[in-house]
Design a protein around this nucleic acid. Structure first.
Lengths: 250, 250
DNA sequence: CGCCAGGTTGATTTCGCTCAAGCAATGTGG
DNA sequence: CCACATTGCTTGAGCGAAATCAACCTGGCG
């Protein structure tokens, strides 16, 4: 599962070489697990397995059995579903503070997608038995996961709707807007700067398009002055132009 | 919400003119609610609102606020998401024994899709407050809903994957196979007979296609001897032919 | 330096949408 | 019971968006 020791961490990311403690996790505020009081949190803390992964590594593989969930302390992760023909689609991005793998755990199936790190990541594994135990002991935790999955389900259905009715150019505009939240900043001149953790290939897989088609959509948006695209950088000078792309397209 | 008194029930469907009792509900075995013991079930029973709806009626509307969930005692229901351009997509079918509306309830949003009856339906409404109360009292019920939503989320993502990579003809083959479960029988000669509760329009909306495109796909399958299509009837003589359509297309 | 993966661009084809017409089934009022 | 409207389904012609196939860049990296 972990493909050897992690190698490519920058100095600042190397801060946490030792086993971290859940209670001091920088993402504790956002995670589902904040529902737990200090004593239940200690159960996680003592049973978790901490790992650091370089970019492009698998956290788990599609079709393999589920032994627990993973909690992201740092980095970005993509959930990718593939078929026998080499088609692959990224169903969602997972960011620091989020938990992954719970869908398969709750459904009692194998993983239906693989999770792969896009950036260097710090991840904790929490064994299935501990999760089950905590769920029975804390109705609040169940409630959080119900809420979380309800959100995911909404996202998934919305995404399906969009791939059916919107063209690639518009879906790309939606993606840029969505990435603004986690990966966007504003520079001195008021431009929106987004630094996606994704390659072109992966961006394409995320909106359900071929890389060539995405390339053309990017060019089209650029020619129309909606955004400027660098290797892993998107600049939006006027948000209104981007919103016009989306128009009334939900 | 309920558009007047129900009118078009056949004699057998009319069996339950009076308020039914949860404990004797024919679908009690399948529902999430079977997690509840008799005493908690009584809470639902005393607070529920029973309704009969003719076909084509709305159980709830997209964008309207959520006051509880609905439990289907009889009939088939479609969850439809629409946008301002008149595009609409059916995200899933709900059958007797299933609960609907919980996604919006758990997410704390308005309904993101409307629910409309495809056949005459018997539905019970369960108020939000009762659901919340039961969830905190019964970890088992939470667990069932976690399981249920995990399944739905898997379905939604699979469906998204298929609309991206499979052509309409193949998606239709998948739909036929899926409808076999609830709506299929086998006749004396061993043919599979499926009686979908859907119009052509709705079948199209379910696989994410225009009615015209579906019509052509149907003709293609028929010309190739995969299935015979009547108004609301599908005959499959040799299941292998249908499976060949799907081939290794997940 | 040459190699290689990732990205772009161009030419072509395919699939499904749009628009428009025709047709079949059902319902309605005279 | 029939003329007629209505609605849903099918078919055809044309078009547009995106996939496919192929060539060519580009930037790291050994």
């Amino acid at each position: 599962m972990s493909d050897g020791p992690p190698t490519d961490f920058s100095p600042e990311q190397r801060l946490c070489d030792e086993e971290p403690v859940c209670a001091t996790c920088p993402t504790y505020q956002q995670a589902e697990w904040q529902a737990l009081g200090p004593e239940l949190l200690r159960k996680i803390n003592s049973s978790k397995v901490y790992m650091q992964l370089g970019p492009g590594k698998a956290v788990f593989h599609q079709n393999s059995p589920v032994n627990g969930v993973h909690c992201v302390r740092q980095g970005s992760i993509a959930m990718r579903r593939s078929d026998a023909h080499g088609n692959s689609r990224i169903s969602r991005l997972i960011e620091a503070g989020q938990t992954l793998g719970y869908r398969a755990l709750f459904a009692g199936t194998v993983y239906e997608a693989s999770a792969e790190t896009l950036t260097p990541c710090q991840v904790c594994f929490i064994p299935k038995a501990v999760v089950s135990e905590l769920l029975t002991e804390s109705p609040e935790l169940s409630s959080r996961f119900l809420q979380r999955m309800a959100g995911d389900l909404g996202d998934a259905e919305l995404s399906g709707f969009r791939t059916t009715f919107l063209r690639i150019r518009t879906r790309l505009a939606h993606l840029i807007l969505a990435m603004r939240g986690r990966h966007g900043t504003v520079d001195d001149e008021g431009n929106i700067i987004i630094e996606p953790p994704l390659s072109r290939q992966d961006m394409a897989a995320l909106i359900g398009a071929r890389a060539e088609s995405l390339s053309r959509a990017i060019r089209a948006l650029q020619d129309d002055g909606v955004a400027k695209f660098g290797r892993r950088r998107i600049e939006v000078h006027d948000l209104d132009n981007l919103l016009d792309e989306i128009d009334d397209h939900i």
